[in-house]
């Protein structure tokens, strides 16, 4: 599973992109975020408040209860501020 981080999430986690193999208990976005938070202090800081983290699965916006599967491209980022 490929995870991408953008903006201040990227800065706090300390990388823009990584490949991970989460345990079988990770089935949806919420459980993935919870698992990522336990990977280190940078992750904990980036994901401290999941309510402000936006998620895209395979480049489409997704909600916390959306299922995640091996091979997915999952992006985590703050609310967008373009335009």
């Amino acid at each position: 599973m490929k995870i991408l981080y953008f903006a201040w999430l990227r800065q706090r986690v300390g990388c823009a992109e990584e490949s991970v193999e989460p345990p079988a208990s990770v089935t949806d976005v919420a459980s993935l975020v919870e698992w990522l938070r336990g990977r280190g202090p940078g992750y904990a800081a980036a994901l401290a408040d999941p309510s402000i983290v936006r998620i895209a699965i395979n480049q489409a916006f997704a909600r916390a209860d959306a299922p995640v599967r091996p091979g997915d491209e999952i992006a985590l980022f703050p609310p967008v501020t373009g335009g």
Partner: peptide
């Protein structure tokens, strides 16, 4: 288009 891209296009300003 402007209203939608402000909230749906994945850009971040630093």
């Amino acid at each position: 288009l402007m209203d939608w891209l402000k909230t749906k296009a994945p850009f971040w300003k630093l």
